[in-house]
Simulated assay, not measured.
Amino acid sequence: MTIESISTGIVPSSAPVSDAVRAGKQVWLVAIAEDPETGAIVDGGIEGQTRRTLENLDMAVRAAGGTLANVVQVQVFLIDSADAAGMNAVYREFFAAPYPVRATVVVKELLAKGLRVEMLATAVLD
C-alpha cells in the first residue's frame, strides 16, 4: 500500500507532521485554529477557534480530493469541558446527519499557546 502525504500549507513545514495522509481510500487529517496565512492561533474564544479549525479541516480534506461529507470520524481535544457547548454549536454548522462518529476528550493543555481545540479526522474517499 502506498502512503501519500498531502500538503495544504496549514501545518508549518518545519514541523515533523503531515497535514493529511492518504492510504488507499482513507485519509487521516489534523486541524487546529491556526490562520493559514499568518500561522497565528486565531482569537474569538472557542467558537472562533472551532470555526477556524473546521475551515482548516475542510481545506485539508479538499486538498485530498474530498469534502467534509467524506469525514466518517472526528476526535476533538478541548482544554476545558465548558467549551463543549460552543464547540458543538459551530460543529453543527459544518456537519449534517449522518454525523461522523466522534469522541471528545478534555486535556490539560494543547501544544500551541492559546489553543483551545484540536481535531483529528478520518475521511473515506470514493
Rank of each mutant, 00 (worst) to 15 (best):
D58H: 12
T104N: 03
F77N: 02
P36V: 09
A64C: 04
G114M: 05
W28N: 02
L110P: 00
I79E: 04
A85M: 08
P98C: 06
G44I: 09
L29M: 08
M119T: 01
A40R: 06
A33H: 03
V76H: 01
A69C: 12
V101G: 13
V117N: 00
S18P: 07
T53S: 07
E34K: 01
M119K: 01
T8L: 03
Q73G: 14
D43Y: 15
L57T: 03
E93I: 12
D83K: 05
I41S: 04
S13L: 13
D43E: 15
A96Y: 13
I3N: 09
Q26E: 07
E109N: 13
E37Q: 12
N70R: 04
V11C: 09
R116K: 12
S81Q: 08
P100E: 07
I3G: 15
F94P: 03
S14V: 07
A103L: 09
Q75T: 14
E118F: 02
L115I: 04
V21N: 00
K113I: 10
R52T: 05
V90D: 11
P36A: 05
A33R: 00
D83S: 03
V76D: 00
G66C: 08
S14E: 15
E55L: 10
A33V: 02
F95C: 07
E118Y: 05
I10K: 00
R62G: 10
S7V: 13
W28Q: 08
D35K: 07
S13T: 10
V74A: 02
V42I: 10
T2P: 04
E47R: 06
V74P: 00
M59K: 07
P98S: 13
V90E: 13
V17G: 03
G66W: 00
N88V: 01
A89R: 03
L29G: 00
G114F: 05
V27D: 01
R51W: 05
L54W: 05
F77A: 06
A31M: 05
E109Y: 08
N88Y: 13
R22Y: 11
V42F: 11
V107P: 03
M59R: 08
P100H: 04
V124P: 08
V105H: 14
A89N: 11
S18K: 09
E4K: 10
N88E: 12
